[in-house]
Amino acid sequence: MPTLLTLRGNVCVHNLSATTALGGTEPRTEQHGPITLSEEPGYALASVAARKGGERATVLAIRRIIGPAAPKPNHAAGNTVTAFWTGPEQWMLEAPYDSHETLFAMARAEVKGKASITEQTSGWCRFDLRGVGLGAVLERLCPINMTKFQPGDATRTSIDHLGCFVICRALDHISILGPRSSAASLHHGLLTSMRSAY
C-alpha cells in the first residue's frame, strides 16, 4: 500500500499549520553565557534498517543518498542528507525538511526493498547547542567523554532519563535528538545545565 500524498515539488500540499515540539508556531532560541540553545524543527528523519541479506545493498544505497560511505558505529556522515548509525545494520537519515519532507519516500525508492524505511520526522525533537565550551554543558547531562567528542561523532545516551542521540556537527555545534513528547522536559534539562555551567 503506497503512502499517498499530494506533492508540489517535494512539499506536501495541504492547509494545516505545523507546531514545533515545544508547542509554538516559531522555534524557540535561548542564549545563556557563551551558549545558544535552539529548537530545530526544520529537519526530516527516516530510519533505515537492512533486511536479511540486504546489508551490503543498504550500505551502498546510503552512500548513494548521502555521498560518503555509510557511517560506522558512533559516527555520522553526509552533506545535505546526513546519516548517523543507530544500531547493527540500522541508520537514521536526516535532511532539511523544506526540501526533503518526503525523505522516507526517497529512501524507500533508493533501497529497492533491501531495507525497511520508516518515517521518523515527527517522532523526535531536535535541539542544537552552539558556542565555545559545550563540554561543560553536556558533561553535566550525560556520560559522553566530551574531551574526545569530535565532529562526525554521534552516539546514543540518556539525558534526564530520555533516550537521546547526540551528534557533533562541529566543535562548537552539537545536535541533540530526543523523544518529541518530552521536548519540554529535555529543553528544561538543557537550559538548566547551561545555567549551571555558565
Binding site: K52, G53, S116, P179
Partner: peptide, 14 residues
C-alpha cells in the same frame, strides 16, 4: 533467522 525490523513510531503520529 526471521527477517523482521522493528521501530517505535509512537511519537511520530498524532
Amino acid at each position: 533467522d526471521l527477517d523482521v525490523q522493528l521501530i517505535s513510531t509512537t511519537e511520530a503520529w498524532a
